[in-house]
C-alpha cells in the first residue's frame, strides 16, 4: 500500500520554486528508499533485522530514531516506533518528510503552499490573498463525506484513524489494536508532532490535552469532542 503526496502551490512558479519542487520529489523518493518497511533492502528494514547498526545507516535514520524516542517519552509511551513488535518509524516519518519537503519550497521563496502526505497536511501562508486554508476532515463512518472542517494559516493538520485501513494502530502497552476512537485530528505548528500526537491519542483511546496541539476526536457513535482551541471552521 502506498501513500500519495501532492504539492499545491498558490504562488507563481519561479525557476527557483520549480527546482525546489523537483528537489522535494527527489527527497521523498530518498526517504522512501531509506525508511520503507516494504523494501527488504531499505536501511530501516536492515536495521530492524539487526543486520546493520544505526552508525552504518544514513544520518537521517539517527535523527528520526531520536525523534521517535522523544515522541515516546512525550506521549507516555503511547507513540512507539516498535508498537507492532518490530521497528517501524513510518508513523513519524511521513509528517517529518512532508515538513522537509515544505521547507525546501519555503527556502526557494514559495510562501503559500500545501504539501499533502496521504491526508496529513503542512499548510504555509494562505490559500488565496486574505483567505485562510480550509481543510475538510474525512468522516470515518461515511466514506467520501466530511465530518467537519478546520481553517487557518501556517499550520499542520494530521489525522489518524481507523476508516480506511481498519484498526491498524496498536496500543504499545497492550499490543492490541486501538479501537476506542474512530479518528483523531490534531492541529499545530509542526506536522511531525501533530502526527505523533494524533497517533498517540488513537492508541490511548482518548485525546489528552497537549499545549499547542489541540485535537478533535471522533467517537464510535459519531459524536465529536474537541479542545476549545481547536480551529474548527464549522459554522454550527
Amino acid at each position: 500500500m502506498g501513500t500519495v503526496f501532492s504539492f499545491d502551490l498558490r504562488d507563481p512558479a519561479t525557476p527557483a520554486v520549480t527546482r525546489a519542487l523537483a528537489a522535494a520529489v527527489r527527497l521523498l523518493h530518498q526517504v522512501d528508499a531509506v525508511f520503507s518497511t516494504y523494501r527488504p533492502d531499505s536501511a530501516v528494514s536492515r536495521l530492524g533485522r539487526g543486520e546493520i547498526t544505526v552508525d552504518r545507516c544514513p544520518p537521517e535514520v539517527g535523527e528520526v530514531l531520536r525523534l521517535c524516542a522523544l515522541a515516546e517519552q512525550r506521549t507516555g509511551g503511547f507513540f512507539s516506533a516498535t508498537a507492532a513488535g518490530r521497528l517501524d518509524p513510518s508513523g513519524l516519518v511521513k509528517g517529518w518528510a512532508v515538513e522537509r519537503a515544505a521547507d525546501l519550497l519555503l527556502a526557494a521563496g514559495a510562501r503559500n503552499l500545501c504539501v499533502n502526505g496521504g491526508g496529513d497536511l503542512r499548510l504555509c501562508g494562505e490559500a488565496a490573498p486574505g483567505e485562510p486554508w480550509r481543510i475538510g476532515l474525512a468522516d470515518p463512518r461515511h466514506p467520501g463525506r466530511l465530518t467537519g472542517t478546520v481553517q487557518g494559516r501556517d499550520m499542520a493538520v494530521a489525522t489518524s484513524g481507523t476508516a480506511e485501513r481498519g484498526a491498524h494502530i496498536t496500543d504499545p502497552h497492550t499490543g492490541r489494536p486501538a479501537t476506542a476512537l474512530l479518528a483523531v485530528t490534531v492541529v499545530g505548528p509542526s506536522l511531525t508532532w501533530a502526527d505523533v500526537h494524533a497517533t498517540a491519542h488513537m492508541a490511548r483511546g482518548r485525546a489528552v490535552p497537549v499545549p499547542g496541539y489541540p485535537a478533535l476526536a471522533v467517537h464510535p457513535d459519531g459524536t465529536r469532542t474537541a479542545d476549545a482551541r481547536f480551529p474548527s471552521g464549522d459554522t454550527s
Partner: peptide, 17 residues
C-alpha cells in the same frame, strides 16, 4: 482544490497510484 470551500482533505491515507 477548485472548491471555494475546501482546499484539501485530512484523514485520507489512500492508495491510488
Amino acid at each position: 482544490a477548485q472548491s471555494a470551500r475546501i482546499d484539501a482533505v485530512s484523514g485520507a491515507s489512500y492508495t491510488s497510484e
